[in-house]
Amino acid sequence: MERKIRVLVAKPGLDGHDRGAKVVARALRDAGMEVIYTGLHQTAEMVVQTAIQEDVDVIGLSLLSGAHMTLFTDIAELLKERGMGDVLVVGGGIIPEEDVPRLKESGIKGIFGPGTSMDEIITFIKENVKG
């Protein structure tokens, strides 16, 4: 049987802008993935516990409030701490160019800003998810 890519789409932090997260979730579903959506206002602990239980291959974080430097890195660190460092983590939102290197260093492998096409995200996931 074909192995399905499982993705957790999570919205950490307080902003309620879920249009992007939901559009991405639907697009990933349409690309044949199993997508678990957490809803709004997730703490790092909630995201990581969910990722563990759902045994996901990918975590997609969406945040538009500008709190990404704190919250994305919190999650990346907690994942490593729990031995989940091999999960592919990507992030989207309003992320200034200058923050990107530090986010990548912390373990967020893909950063997608406004205007990213769904295809680009899908391709990135398919190419980078571990086999």
Partner: peptide, 19 residues
């Protein structure tokens, strides 16, 4: 049935139990 993908959203109601 078309894409083989799924949106699994039931957890959203249970997130408080996640930890």
């Amino acid at each position: 049935p078309f894409s083989g993908g799924a949106l699994l959203g039931d957890r959203i109601r249970m997130m408080e139990l996640a930890t």
